[in-house]
Amino acid sequence: MSEIIFHHYPISPFSEKIRLIFGMKKINWTSVMIPPIMPKPDVVALTGGYRRTPILQIGADVYCDTALIADVLDKLVPTPSLYPPAIAGLARTLAQWADTTLFWTAIAYTFQPAAMSSILGNISPEQMQAFAADRAAMRAGAPRISLSEATVQLHEYLRRLSNMLGHGQAYLLGADASIADFSVYHALWFIRRVAAVNSILDSYPAVLKWMDQVAAFGHHHAEKMSSGDALDIARNAVASDVGTTEFVDTHGIALGEQVSVMPADYAFDPVIGELVLATHNQIAVRRQDERAGTVVVHFPRLGFQMKRVG
C-alpha cells in the first residue's frame, strides 16, 4: 500500500472522524500537522486553494472532504467495511445528516462564550480575533443557529440517537460500526472534549456508552512528517491513472477542459485545473504547482459544485 499521508490538526472534529477510521481498519498512516487557520501555504500548494481540514494525500493524489476520504480508505482496506451492504444507503444518508445538520448544531452550541478558552486554549486576544476572522471568512455570511436554538435542537437529536441505541445494539445501525457511527461521533466528540459545555450529554447514558465504544477504536499507528516532506513526495510521485474510469457528464463539460471546483456550502475557495475524472460520486482535476509539482485533486460530487473556466 502506498504511504497514506493525513493533513490535520488535533482539535479538528472531521479529522477525528478519519483518525478513528484508521483505528477501526488498523491502517498505518503518516501525520502532517497543519495550521487551524489561514495562511496554509503548504496545504494550498497541494490543493490549489481548498482550505478545509482534513485532506488525505497518497503520492500525487490529494483527496478532499471526509466523505470521499472514507470511501478511499474503504477501498484500500475493505474489511471491516464502513458500508455493510444491508445498511449502506442508510449509513451514508445518516452520515450526510451528521456531517452537515448535526455538525453545525454542535458547533453553534459548543462555541458559546463560556467555552471559548477551553476550545482554543490560552491564546491572546489578537489570536482570538484572527481565529474569529478566519471562520467568518469561511462561512461567507451564512447565518448561524443561535445558542438557544442549538441547545433545544441538540437535545432532540440526542433523544433520537438514544432511541436508536436503546434496543441492545452496539452501534447506531446494528452490531457493526459503519460510516454513520464515525460521522455522528465526531460532532459529539467536539462537545464532549469541552468541560464547560459537555454536561448536556450526561442525560443520555446510551449515547455516552456508544461514544466510548467508538473511541475505543483509537487511531492505530501514525508516523510524523513535515508538510515540506509531504510536498516533496507529491512532486516526485505520479498520480494514479484515471483514464479508464467511466465518464459521467452532468455539466456538458468534456474531460480535458479547465474547470473550477469548490464547496457548495462554505469555504468557497475554488480549485482550478484540468478535468480528468467525473464519475457518479467523484470529480478530479489535474493541476500544476511550483512546489508540489503535478497533482490530481479529488472531490466528492455531493456538497461540491463545478463550473467551466472561461
Results as ranks from 00 to 15, higher is better:
Trp210Ser: 08
Ile200Ala: 03
Ala264Asp: 14
Val271Pro: 07
Glu246Lys: 11
Lys40Tyr: 05
Glu246Phe: 12
Asn163Lys: 15
Ile233Pro: 05
Asp176Ser: 15
Ala180Gln: 00
Ala195Asn: 13
Thr79Arg: 06
Gln258Ala: 14
Asp65Leu: 07
Ala130Leu: 03
Asp61Pro: 04
Phe111Asp: 12
Asn198Leu: 06
Gly293Asn: 05
Met128Arg: 15
Ile283Gln: 12
Ser2Asn: 11
Arg286Leu: 12
Asn163Gly: 14
Thr79Lys: 11
Ile58Tyr: 10
Val214Leu: 01
Leu154Arg: 06
Ala292Val: 05
Leu90Pro: 00
His186Val: 04
Val77Ile: 14
Gln169Leu: 10
Val44Phe: 01
Ser124Thr: 15
Leu120Phe: 15
Thr100Leu: 07
Met1Arg: 13
Ile27Thr: 11
Pro36Lys: 04
Met138Pro: 01
Gln258Tyr: 04
Val238Gly: 00
Tyr63Ile: 06
Ala267Gln: 05
Asp74Glu: 02
Val276Gly: 02
Leu56Ile: 07
Cys64Met: 06
Val297Pro: 05
Phe103Gln: 13
Ile272Gly: 00
Val296Gln: 09
Thr105Trp: 02
Gln305Tyr: 11
Leu46Ser: 05
Thr100Glu: 05
Ala45Ser: 15
Gly121Tyr: 09
Ser148Asp: 15
Ala180Arg: 00
Gln96Trp: 03
Val297Ser: 08
Ser148Ala: 15
Pro36Tyr: 07
Leu172Gly: 00
Gln288Ile: 11
Ala115Met: 02
Asp61Trp: 01
Leu56Gly: 08
Gly59Arg: 09
Arg287His: 06
Val194Gln: 05
Ile200Gly: 07
Leu20Arg: 14
Ser15Asp: 05
Cys64Phe: 02
Ala142His: 14
Phe247Asp: 01
Val295Ile: 06
Gln213Glu: 14
Gln96Arg: 11
Arg144Gly: 10
Asp241Gly: 01
Gly49Met: 05
Leu275Glu: 08
